[in-house]
Amino acid sequence: MVKLFERNVLDLHNLPAEKTAIEVRDFSLQFGNKPVLKDISMAIPKHQVTALIGQSGCGKSTLISCFNRMNDLVADCQYQGEVLIDGRNIYDQRENVALLRTRVGMVFQRPNPFPMSVYDNVSYGLRLQQEKSRRVLDNTVEQALKDAALWDEVKDRLFDSALTLSGGQQQRMVIARALALKPEILLLDEPTSALDPLTTLYIEELINKIKHQCTVIIVTHNMQQAARVSDYTAFMHQGKLIEFADTDTLFTLPQKKSTEDYITGRYG
């Protein structure tokens, strides 16, 4: 038979180690007495875009923050279980958290440019790592801005304040700042919720391009965005992972009723 459409879907239940970016094993987390994540196990595939969807308060942002230990900053945060990157538990006491956060970059809902030039913003992480070579810095800034599809718009104003950029440009600059450190994993927490629909599409296109460089995990309230941009989607509800499947299947033939209810707007 003639095969008209090529589709490569990974088996998420038997993902080989070389194709796994993050493995979460029986992970639970609570803030004080309030359980936020309940016994989550999943393997996130490498060099793919994985979306986390679910209602507000379902724990998706908390889960994404676990991947570079941002929750350590929250008082009374307790956890059980493991999060493995390259086979190592990042919650191990010997883990170098600062190094972890260069390997696992993060971009937030609202663009957060530092009050300095575009060049200084993008090269900030490298300078923190004591990189002093002007050539290395120049090349990295140019490449990161190109990867973030921003170079053509800012190449003549690299030394202007980043605060003069538009919202969409600022968000792409923040993504470039994260890419400059060549992260293995990029976490995006609602990266387009403050942007207009067209700029959102540009950022989504950017996400599709950068997945070849790093694994992308995106939290979004916008189900259509998850459908458009991701290869795999996880649906969470009340701190539990309800369903995790390739996006095509999840949005056309979900296995769990609560997933179907949520994506068809029948929830609650």
Partner: peptide, 23 residues
């Protein structure tokens, strides 16, 4: 003709996928 039938099913599935994912 079996080949043609298979093509119809594949294209239908792709249309369904595009409607669900791309709106």
């Amino acid at each position: 003709d079996l080949n043609v039938n298979s093509m119809e099913m594949q294209i239908d599935e792709e249309c369904l996928r595009i409607i669900a994912k791309r709106h």
